[in-house]
Design a protein around this nucleic acid. Structure first.
Length: 564
RNA sequence: CGCGGGGUAGAGCAGUCCGGUAGCUUGCCAGGCUCAUAACCUGGAGGUCGCGUGGUUCAAAUCCCGCCCCCGCAACCA
């Protein structure tokens, strides 16, 4: 039985709109890899959705004066719409608040409870009568007892970075209402006993050394080294799955308990749509036959490498675990963080208004923050789009098709004698395509994109060497051979670019009126460059890419306040 | 305090695991070509690889020690 490829992107929190950072860290690479896998002919399932429970949703809904269910639906739909705009090819974009997720969450919870991994503890929680709710730690602000910073949050002081409890703060206030009437209440909560699973997790994580990216392995190891602690999985909120246990009425599961379970719940949403042909258990209770690749920003690594695997293992059932965890660093905006509240950075709706999705997709993958944080600037964005997409790729397509139309019309000219120059091209492409495929397979995204670019360059190189504009005057058959090869290159470049730039790739292939379902090339370059035959007709393509002018670049910098 | 990541030509990165005269892209300079989106192709200049004129070694960007700087870090900021 051939393996199944399960691909998940970290679930973006429903509250507010996503920006380029969300896209680059998990959503986009998951899509690129899913496309790659599908083109390889693999049984692929790519799952994503919105993470909906928790205080920020409740607060956001109150602010917009709507019921929290409605609020979440509204933003869920907005997320879905934007991701569609970026051509993210999730097989299902679901919700952690779905009935299916509730069912799976309960199932896992009961199993953990049965295995003695769930414990009750009394905890002190901050209650604000003015807000009529318990406050999460970071919603309490006050003066830091260590450095005197007046706007320290109850979980950590941003000024001195000390980790705090809300009760440490001097003059604590609610960040919501500003009320200083803060009460500490004793309330009972459930905890997952992570220490019991620590040794087992450690053994498992060590098998990932040298396989997972450094950042993923070392963050997981760091947590284990410091020793796991029991982790609260319930909260005093209304918006969430109610806790199915006596004595816990009125409490819900903590968002971080049901959010990763959401991958499974969402898969069940997908399979419930066509229960006769789909079965979520084939994907999630089938560890021997499923390769599960997860994509996420570095903040999410602990949950996916420690907490969630522990949750699944604790059930005693054979759940599919993460095989490869692709953790990404941050994408910053002009040196600082993207920020919703400060309106810093580029949000997805704006991005799509400025440029086609494929421009963003290409830049983000070519500059993916794999080994270190990376900054987005319009300077590098414009330079990359102009050089790589316009000068190298776009101009190649343009020169080859224009020349052919002028000298041979709208038909693929005949392939004549194959010379050493063609053979050299075949050899170069064989090497580069192999390299490109390997990098995609191993999720070395920047290197993959650099190789893709090299592939495009090899086309220009070939044209420069063979000089068809001269050949057409002296040896028309030779010119025909060169342009035949050139047109085949255009089509091949389209196929190879498809996971990264699906729209533009489609346009590149479409001019030959052939398939628009992409199949990853497995033949030799020589065969690949003979798929378009003499006499096949094609249509002259529109100019595929537009340059970003210096004026436009400056406008964008001003508009998005780059450098402020 | 501690922990993790990073510090390599003007800019952005690879190379570090498995030591052997420092590589890629962009930018700059020169040449070629003129089919094409003033583009393409070729060549060149440019780096004491954060610091210690530290240790190991015939040989260190790569291993060891000490230090400095940047980014991130306890769970509802991706």
């Amino acid at each position: 039985m051939s393996k199944k490829y399960l691909i998940t992107s970290a679930l973006p929190y429903v509250n507010g709109l996503p920006h380029l950072g969300h896209l680059v860290g998990c959503l986009l690479p998951a899509d690129v890899y899913a496309r790659f896998c599908r083109e390889q002919g693999r049984d692929t399932l790519c799952i994503c959705g919105t993470d909906e429970h928790g205080t920020p949703s409740e607060v956001g809904a109150a602010k917009e004066n709507m019921p929290v269910e409605e609020y979440c639906k509204k933003y869920h739909d907005l997320h879905a719409q934007m991701y569609q705009g970026f051509n993210l090819s999730f097989d299902y974009f679901g919700r952690t608040s779905s009935d299916q997720n509730k069912e799976i969450t309960y199932r896992i919870f009961h199993a953990l409870d049965k295995n003695g991994l769930i414990e009750e503890k009394m905890t002190k929680q901050v209650y604000s009568p003015a807000d009529g709710r318990y406050l999460p730690d970071s919603y309490v602000i006050g003066t830091c007892p260590y450095c005197g910073y007046e706007k320290a949050k109850g979980d950590q002081c941003e000024n001195c970075t000390k980790v705090l409890d809300p009760t440490d703060l001097i003059n604590p206030k609610s960040a919501l209402s500003g009320s200083s009437d803060i009460q500490i209440k004793e309330t009972k909560h459930l905890f997952l006993n992570l220490p019991k699973l620590e040794a087992e997790l450690n053994t498992w994580i060590e098998t990932k050394k040298g396989i997972w990216p450094d950042i993923a392995y070392s963050v997981a190891k760091k947590w284990l080294k410091e020793g796991l602690q029991e982790r609260g999985i319930t909260r005093d909120l209304k918006w969430g799955f109610s806790v199915p246990k006596e004595g816990f009425e009125g409490k819900v599961f903590y968002v971080w308990f049901d959010a990763p379970i959401g991958y499974i719940g969402i898969t069940k949403q997908w399979s419930d749509e066509k229960p006769n042909e789909r079965n979520w258990e084939d994907w999630w209770l089938n560890p021997e036959n499923v390769i599960h690749t997860e994509f996420m920003g570095k903040d999410n690594i602990p949950f996916h490498s420690i907490t969630f695997p522990a949750t699944l293992r604790g059930t005693g059932e054979k759940w599919t675990e993460v095989s490869f965890l692709k953790g990404m660093n941050w994408l910053n905006f002009a040196g600082g963080k993207f920020s919703k509240s400060a309106k810093r950075g580029i949000f997805l709706d704006d991005a799509l208004k400025e440029f086609p999705a494929d421009y963003w997709r290409y830049w983000l993958m070519a500059n993916a923050p794999e080994s270190d944080d990376t900054s987005f600037t319009f300077e590098t964005f414009a330079a990359t789009i102009n050089k790589d997409l316009n000068d190298v790729l776009g101009n190649f397509i343009n020169r080859v098709t224009k020349m052919t139309v002028k000298d041979f019309g709208l038909q693929v000219p005949a392939l004549g004698e194959i010379t050493d120059t063609e053979k050299e091209l075949y050899a170069t492409l064989d090497t580069l395509i192999k390299q490109y495929t390997d990098y995609m397979e191993n999720l070395e995204i920047r290197k993959a994109l650099a190789t893709l670019r090299e592939i495009w360059v090899s086309g220009n190189n070939y044209i420069a060497k063979t000089e068809p504009w001269k050949a057409v005057k002296t040896d028309k058959a030779r010119a025909a051979t060169i342009l035949n090869t050139g047109l085949n290159l255009v089509r091949l470049f389209g196929i190879l670019s498809a996971p990264i730039m699906p729209e533009k790739a489609k346009e590149m292939v479409k001019i030959f009126g052939k398939e628009d379902v992409f199949v990853w090339p497995k033949k030799s370059a020589q065969e690949l460059l003979q798929e378009l035959k003499e006499g096949d007709s094609f249509t002259a393509p529109e100019v595929l890419f537009q340059k970003i002018t210096p004026e436009r670049k400056e406008e964008l910098k001003l508009k998005y306040k780059e450098g402020e």
